[in-house]
Design a protein around this nucleic acid. Structure first.
Lengths: 219, 219
DNA sequence: GGAGAAAGTAGTCATGGACAACAATGTAGA
DNA sequence: TCTACATTGTTGTCCATGACTACTTTCTCC
């Protein structure tokens, strides 16, 4: 309708603040739509679950027409895939941070990592579900890559345990998977409502204890 | 339980073959629509996943009008809940059967039960996902009841292990949850594509071994 | 056999995803 | 600088679906 001259002016100069979405002035080109959509999608999924996510809603919330998202995501599934990928990146970062901040003691690191994982599972249950429900994992798939990267701190942890004689020898990946499964299962039991938050801490603690005992080197 | 009142109701003069859907004669009243919808839904979910499931499609496939399912399921979510519930019933039956057929040895029973669980997870991955994503678990919720019933063989198994001195003492439910989480996590890793079927057997075996070692009584 | 409940049908609406034609902006090369 | 072309948004449309309502057929029970 009535085009605003100021808006045009800003658009020409490509103000960085506009592009990051920190300034609300409108211009024809959003400048950062893909990221904005992902961010909004993540918030919506957290608050309303996957079913509450609609591309048209997303477009509205970001202030763009309903057709715009299509320029960045071919279809809804593509957006979900991207969301899952960014979820893996975030989870990986949080695991790595927990790993770092926990000092060098194996047990402390192990529990800190598990706690970080569960924290993520609690705060972003639906996102974690999504991350675990995305199918196509073709090894060269960016999703697969992101997932592998996210869990690398855990495998490093296993390696440390082996060096220190706390865990039995063997393929770190193989041993790590047992831990991984155990923690993910714990998270699933909680997010599915099968256990209460009161039981979660207990279960998480037990799972780790059993894992460590189970993986003890056999003298 | 007693939500089969409708079936009983119509069972009075309804031809059994009609009711099972083996006869294609049309009558205004389907006679068994609820069950037929659930059955068809289960097949569709297995073949096409949750997203491939539409009430209207279901109605078409079963040969009724698009409004008919509403008489039996208030909305789509209600159908999904019922599907999850029937999934728990089936899983429970399969776990119980595996438990029975495995003889009386604890280890054999344990592995047979885990195998049954994983078999279910592989054959009906999307259904298991659904079972674990249904939220409302209010203890008196039929879903919660069905879930608890399904896993009762597992807790019985824990009890046996304790009697035989193979597992440490303690609340069987608490110990059982660790096993449950471990197996469910294993299943999740597989159905999400994070591990290949080649790794599944190994992981499952490792998870059980670690669990048994971890739960060993401490002398 | 008739009243009323149960089960199915048909029509409608709003929402949402996918698609296509078009418009505005950005960019690179002559 | 000007101009062709690629990017990115917009608008309008189609179609499938879930949900709702009014109506019809059948069943059951008194």
């Amino acid at each position: 309708m009535d085009n605003n001259v100021d808006a045009d002016h800003n658009a020409v100069n490509g103000n960085i603040l506009d592009r990051v979405g920190l300034v609300s002035e409108k211009s024809y080109h959003h400048g950062n739509l893909r990221a904005a959509l992902l961010e909004q999608a993540k918030a919506t999924v957290r608050e309303q679950g996957l079913d509450g996510l609609s591309l048209r809603d997303l477009a509205r919330q970001v202030g763009v027409s309903h057709g715009a998202p299509r320029r960045h995501f071919q279809d809804r599934q593509a957006l979900l895939d991207a969301l899952a990928e960014s979820g893996f990146e975030q989870l990986g970062a949080e695991l790595a941070a927990a790993f770092e901040q926990a000092g060098s003691d194996f047990g402390t690191r192990l529990r800190a990592s598990a706690a970080a994982y569960l924290r993520f599972a609690i705060n972003d249950a639906a996102l974690l579900d999504l991350m675990f429900s995305s199918k196509g994992h073709d090894a060269d798939d960016p999703l697969h890559t992101a997932a592998m990267a996210a869990f690398s701190p855990m495998f490093e942890l296993i390696h440390q345990g082996q060096r220190e004689g706390i865990l039995e020898a063997g393929d770190p990946e193989r041993i790590g998977l047992v831990l991984f499964a155990s923690i993910q299962g714990t998270a699933a039991l909680f997010t599915s409502g099968m256990i209460e938050s009161a039981q979660l801490e207990q279960l998480a603690s037990d799972a780790i204890t059993y894992f460590v005992r189970g993986a003890l080197p056999i003298p």
